[in-house]
């Protein structure tokens, strides 16, 4: 099987879906220059009508995508960085997420809103957010946060075929990571978590690139005789509650690793679900490993301490089993 990077997986998923379905098209800032490498060879293949450079107008391009989707197209919008979603907030929330509902099912908005998450690189507060938890609070938006190239491709293909808005949050820490990608088509359904590692003592639910830290922590803890089960939800909306609850009922302990700000994060939500529905199976305190509730500073001496890491996961597991 050929090895592909996370970025190549994004590109390949989009390329295959555009080949397959003429209603799929791409809009975004600097798609023509292929800024991050997710559009390699695509404008050459599909032309500038379907791989379409936009002005820097996030609300405008989102609204255009919504309108095009309502008349039968399947737009993919590339925002580049996640914080650039904010100028489009009203179009995402009021239009994309609500139109099917508000009009009683008369329409649908099959759009994919792609953005990357670059943090820990000295880009300061306005360029370093990981806002998937914030959007998960709004009904009507599917949210995928892939943890590896294989999932990225399969989830992106599902996203493009989905009949509702999908936001894809792509962690830049994974860009150069590689997976074996089979020849031929595969899709990964939304709402089905992957159990990355089995264990009997602690359940670690890790979102996106946090799976890397969770797996490293689990390997270290194995040497100490602590068995960690690592669950990757793959999509946070819809969330595979059943797999998480089943695992916690077995282990009795939960650590959630999430790069979001901790308050009202997906980590908080998963802890709340487990506390409500598996309370009597718990054997230790629930643990969140997320980003503290402050903005992201520029200087590395302030920034580096903030995000989840292998060591923080190990420490949280120890608190859970203590």
């Amino acid at each position: 099987m050929p090895e592909k990077t996370f970025l190549e997986a994004i590109r390949d998923a989009q390329f295959e879906e555009m080949e397959r379905d003429p209603t799929v098209f791409i809009m975004g800032e600097d798609v023509e220059s292929n800024m991050f490498g997710t559009f390699s060879g695509m404008q050459e293949t599909f032309g500038a009508e379907r791989v379409r450079n936009t002005p820097i107008a996030e609300a405008g391009m989102t609204g255009l995508a919504v309108g095009a989707a309502m008349v039968g197209m399947r737009p993919i919008v590339d925002f580049t960085m996640s914080p650039f979603l904010y100028p489009a907030m009203d179009q995402i929330v009021s239009m994309a997420s609500k139109s099917r509902y508000l009009y009683g099912g008369q329409t649908q908005v099959p759009i994919v809103l792609r953005s990357n998450m670059i943090y820990g690189n000295g880009n300061a507060a306005q360029h370093s957010d990981r806002p998937y938890s914030m959007f998960a609070n709004m009904p009507g938006i599917n949210i995928m946060v892939p943890s590896c190239a294989y999932d990225m491709k399969g989830l992106m293909k599902t996203a493009i075929r989905n009949d509702d808005p999908v936001m894809s949050f792509e962690d830049a820490a994974l860009w150069s990571s590689k997976s074996d990608i089979p020849d031929g088509e595969y899709l990964i359904p939304f709402g089905e978590a992957a159990v990355r590692r089995s264990g009997d003592d602690v359940t670690i639910v890790a979102v996106g690139a946090m799976v890397v830290h969770a797996m490293a922590a689990a390997a270290e803890l194995e040497g100490e005789g602590v068995g960690c089960e690592v669950i990757d939800p793959r999509t946070v909306v819809p969330l595979d509650r059943a797999t998480i609850l089943e695992s916690v009922r077995k282990t009795g302990r939960l650590v959630v690793v999430d790069s979001s700000f901790e308050t009202c994060s997906i980590a908080s939500e998963i802890c709340a679900i487990v506390a409500s529905e598996a309370f009597w199976d718990l054997r230790g305190p629930l643990q969140r490993v997320a980003t503290p509730h402050t903005h992201i500073p520029f200087s590395p001496t302030m920034e580096e301490q903030l995000f989840p890491s292998k060591d923080k996961v190990v420490a949280a597991v120890r608190r859970a089993v203590a």
């Binding site: 391009m61 609204g63 255009l64 995508a65 309108g67 095009a68 309502m70 008349v71 039968g72």
Partner: peptide
């Protein structure tokens, strides 16, 4: 307003 422009783009 942008949604209308988008419907026109789709068309």
């Amino acid at each position: 307003i942008p949604v209308a422009a988008g419907a026109a783009l789709g068309a």
